[in-house]
Amino acid sequence: MSQVMIATDKLSKSFSSGGVQQHVLKNLDLEILSGDFTVIMGSSGAGKSTLMYALSGMDKPTLGSITYFDQEIAKLSNDKLAVFRRLNCGFVFQQMFLLDNMSILDNILAAGLLVSNDRKAITARAKELLAQVGLTELIWSKFPTQLSGGEAQRAAIVRALINQPKVVFADEPTGALNSASGKAVLDVLTDLNSRGQSIIMVTHDLKSARRGNRILYMRDGVIHGICNLGKYVSGDRERHGKLQAFLTEMGW
């Protein structure tokens, strides 16, 4: 029923430093389905962020191809990739990366207006989304530095959603947050996923990983194991046990 959204073929990413080649991703053949909440886990240095940014068109792979529905993106130019990103991808970063010189609303509109010229519609959508993630009107005109981490991250999520992306990429979205605001952010993401939004999230936090329904475990640049779980249901012990067993097996 759910379609293959992203397919990679022998996806590899190498960095060379001082003449020594280092392969961070090795021959990844991977399929990610739309509607999934895919979680990429692994120890640090395993290449999970590299994988995510390659999948999202933020970074170009060294080898191999990435097919996004029918579009091959691995060989696009930087500018084409930028256009691709603005149309298809939303990003949530650990450090939020909001533009400090603009108000929250403007931050969101700066992304939204890239795609649509209908200022009114975009503004309306932005306001609706902001309300949806629990940011009150008072906050809209504030600057990012005036917000708490959780508020800023929720604003960043709204920015990621403004262009109705096919997939939202989240890189350790709770990494810089305390547990309460982290939970709020995760709740927002889970809620989005339950409405059909595809999400790919990198994390090494168990609490975050629990929210996903497909866990990819990476080690040394390859997918070491895949665990398919059901959709997240709060307090499902069995599901939790399965995930834990998987991670134990993976040597987490």
Binding site: D79, A82, V83, R85, C89, F97, A111, V115
Partner: peptide, 16 residues
């Protein structure tokens, strides 16, 4: 630099 990087990330082209 930082702002430009963020803008690039959310899909601004170099020309823009």
């Amino acid at each position: 630099k930082r702002e430009l990087g963020i803008q690039k990330a959310i899909g601004f082209t170099t020309f823009q």
